[in-house]
Computed example of a mutant assay.
Amino acid sequence: MSNTIKGQIALVTGGTKGIGKAIADKLSSAGATVIVTARTEPKENPNGYYFIAADLARPESAEKVAREVLDQFGKIDIIINNAGANLSMGGSFSSLTDEHWDNDFQLNLMAAVRLNKAFLPAMIEQKSGSIINISTYAAIQPLWEMTMTYSAAKAALNAYTKALSFEVGPKGIRVNAVSPGVVKTPLMQDFIEGIAQSSNISVDEAFRSVMNRVGEVPMGRMGESEEIANLVAFLASPEAKYITGANYLIDGGLSPVV
């Protein structure tokens, strides 16, 4: 993948840790100039990526990010909508409030919708671009007690990805989704600890509970962030120039769907 996207400008939202950081590093190693966003700037930025502080769950943030990127770099070639999280930490239909639903949809769906909308005119003008929306295995296998609002928001993101690919494909822009399974990230650790706290059980018990509900991973382990990044970098590159409107599961064989 070395230098396959040399000279391209890539934006990775939520790009300071976990899967987002791994994607930023991989795109950089493939030759791209990388911009990352997060709510707060990391204490260390060893790779020197251009950083924009933004809470993308807030409607005004997308225009701010797009304006700064285009002012500073003059174009955008790759958008990785990675920012997302399971904000409700689970609950039944009766315990989830409108605020829970709105929070998850704002971050996991509308952040990508608004950011793409802000950048697409520039991509359309240059007649090229690649958008990759990071979804989740939970969108096709929701766990009612853990991921109801998150799964619904990401399922909507999948449908949006497909619809947008039809609209902008003739204009030279590819739109795909990547759906990781259970991946070893700081966000996953926070998720497990949140379940442990809310259920008054140990972290180990919470992890076993999640894995029992998710099911057995045939490859026998959680995924690594770098493995997700490898797929994303391929989809962003010219080597995937005939791929659009697809949703790639990368879950160690966890999904029972053929």
Rank of each mutant, 00 (worst) to 15 (best):
A229D: 10
V175Q: 12
A229S: 05
K171Y: 12
S88D: 13
V34N: 03
E216D: 04
H100C: 08
L120G: 04
I9W: 05
E239L: 13
I9L: 08
V182R: 14
A118F: 06
L11V: 13
P218I: 05
S179I: 01
V217N: 09
G74T: 13
I201F: 05
I19W: 02
V183Y: 11
S202G: 11
A152K: 12
I132D: 12
F93Q: 01
E68H: 00
G14W: 08
A233W: 01
A112I: 06
S151A: 15
M219V: 07
Y242N: 12
A85L: 03
P142T: 10
M219E: 08
I35C: 02
F93C: 02
T4E: 09
E99V: 07
G253C: 14
K43T: 12
Q72I: 03
E193F: 00
G252A: 11
D55Q: 13
G169H: 02
I78K: 09
A30Y: 15
L70S: 12
Y49T: 10
Y137M: 10
S130T: 15
D251C: 06
S29D: 14
K21T: 01
K64N: 04
T185W: 04
T147W: 09
S199V: 00
K26Y: 00
Q126E: 12
T13E: 09
G91K: 12
Y248F: 15
K26N: 06
E167Q: 14
I78N: 05
G48D: 11
A152E: 07
